[in-house]
Structures are given as structure tokens and as C-alpha cells.
């Protein structure tokens, strides 16, 4: 790791406890502000690393295209209520291009689509949740080439990952925003009630994401792989030229 990366991570590691300390000591109701600041502080090292790297044009454009496709993907299923494939596409991007690209695609897709649907108190949470979905997918599957030899198993694993990722990680992260904006006391009972009321929504969301992985992961991953061989995109530092 570069020294600048280490120092930025250290800064964040100091910033988060400082935020927590201030949030509990000052008068007023700091749950929402403290938690949201921590969410933003967690995203900063990723963004800084991306800026420091001075990304090449092709990398930038590819991430932009994937984020925009994720943002418009809901419209392809306009006939089916509550079918949201956005995180599925972010996860596929993470698998194809790595954890960092997956994270960026997720955060940018969430932020950009909120310019059309309205920013709100949930924006940082949505960015973090979607970004983390892409990050996790990249971390788990980007370099796992062995699994490719068993296509049926690979597909089954990805589908399960899509479903579990939403129900266990992305959905609860979004529910946390509800807890911090509407709770008067942070109790386990209230948190559990929020998670329970969010559970059916998360399951529907998870099914959509799992189906996206099942039906779209193979064609999309093939396309993205082909793009890598055809134009040398997303290969470290070369920009394919």
C-alpha cells in the first residue's frame, strides 16, 4: 500500500471514533447525523484512492456506463411491480472488474439516480449499501477463476449470493437509516421492529437481485470479458493503448 493510502485510512480510523464521541457527548439528538457522518467517512478512503490513481479515460467511461445501466435497469421491468435489478448489475460489475470498481459503480449509481428521483436523508445510506454490495461481489468472485469450470455451480452460487447479499447486507443497511431517522431511543426492540418491517421488502428485492444474477450474470460477464480482450479495458494502468 502507498503511504498516502495508509495515512488516509488512519485519518478515517481517527475520525470515526471522534464523531462517535462528539455524537454522544453533545446535547440534542445526534443519532442520524452521527451515523450518517460515519457512513460518509467510511466511503472517503475509496473515493480518495480513486482520485489519487488518476483513472484512465477507458476505466472512467466503463464505470460510468455500468453505473448508468444499473440506474436505468428498473425501467426494463416497468411491467413488473417492485422488480429492482440495480444491485444485481452493480454486483456483476464488481465480479467483472474487481471490488473497487464495484464499490464505485454502486455509490455513483445510487447518487446519480437520486438526482432524478430526489436526494433525501437516505442518499448516503443507499450509496454505501449499493457500493458495499458491489464491493463484496468483487471481493468474493473477481479472482475465483476455478469456479468457472463448473458453470452450473457458479451460477447457483452467484444466484444465492445475490439473494443473501440483499437480505443480509444491503437491505439491513438501508433499514438502519430508518432506525436512525425515526427512533427516539436506540433500543434493540425498536431496531428489531424496523428490521422485521423491512424484511418482506428486502426479500422481494433479494429475489429480483437473485433472478438478475441467474439470468444476466453469464451474458453480461461474457460481454465484459470480451470487452477486456477486445479493447484491453480495465487493465491496470495501460488504458488498452
Amino acid at each position: 500500500m502507498k503511504r498516502s493510502t495508509v495515512s488516509s485510512i488512519l485519518t478515517v480510523l481517527l475520525l470515526i471514533p471522534a464523531t462517535l464521541y462528539l455524537g454522544t457527548k453533545l446535547p440534542g439528538r445526534w443519532y442520524y447525523l452521527t451515523s450518517t457522518l460515519i457512513i460518509i467517512e467510511t466511503m472517503i478512503p475509496f473515493f480518495l484512492a480513486f482520485e489519487k490513481r488518476r483513472p484512465q479515460a477507458r476505466e472512467l467511461v466503463t464505470i460510468a456506463v455500468m453505473a448508468a445501466i444499473a440506474a436505468v435497469s428498473r425501467a426494463a421491468f416497468a411491467f413488473i411491480p417492485n422488480f429492482k435489478p440495480i444491485v444485481g448489475i452493480i454486483m456483476i460489475t464488481g465480479i467483472a472488474f474487481g471490488a473497487e470498481a464495484g464499490f464505485l459503480t454502486g455509490t455513483v449509481a445510487a447518487f446519480a439516480s437520486n438526482f432524478f428521483f430526489g436526494q433525501g436523508p437516505y442518499t448516503p445510506w443507499q450509496m454505501m449499501a449499493y457500493g458495499f454490495g458491489g464491493f463484496l461481489a468483487g471481493l468474493l468472485f473477481h479472482k475465483k477463476r476455478k469456479l468457472h469450470q463448473k458453470p452450473v455451480l457458479y451460477l447457483a452460487v452467484l444466484t444465492a449470493f445475490g439473494f443473501v447479499g440483499i437480505v443480509a447486507v444491503v437491505g439491513p443497511l438501508l433499514d438502519c437509516c430508518t432506525i436512525f431517522t425515526t427512533g427516539t431511543q436506540l433500543t434493540w426492540a425498536y431496531a428489531l421492529a424496523c428490521f422485521a418491517s423491512g424484511f418482506p421488502i428486502n426479500v422481494t428485492h433479494g429475489i429480483a437481485c437473485g433472478l438478475t444474477m441467474l439470468l444476466l450474470s453469464k451474458p453480461l460477464l461474457d460481454k465484459l470479458d470480451r470487452l477486456k480482450t477486445k479493447y484491453g479495458m480495465m487493465e491496470a494502468g495501460t488504458d488498452g493503448l
Binding site: S73, A76, T212
Partner: peptide
């Protein structure tokens, strides 16, 4: 759902090929 997936897949192809020109 099948239709939607086909549309998304086609859109990805179209958009990514175009992105090379942009870059």
C-alpha cells in the same frame, strides 16, 4: 422478466461499444 433481461443485455452491449469511442 426474460424480456427485461434481454433488453438490458442488449443495452449493455450497445452502451459499452459506444463507450470505447467516448474514451
Amino acid at each position: 422478466i426474460g424480456q427485461g433481461m434481454t433488453v438490458l443485455s442488449a443495452l449493455t452491449d450497445w452502451a459499452l461499444e459506444g463507450s470505447v469511442v467516448t474514451a
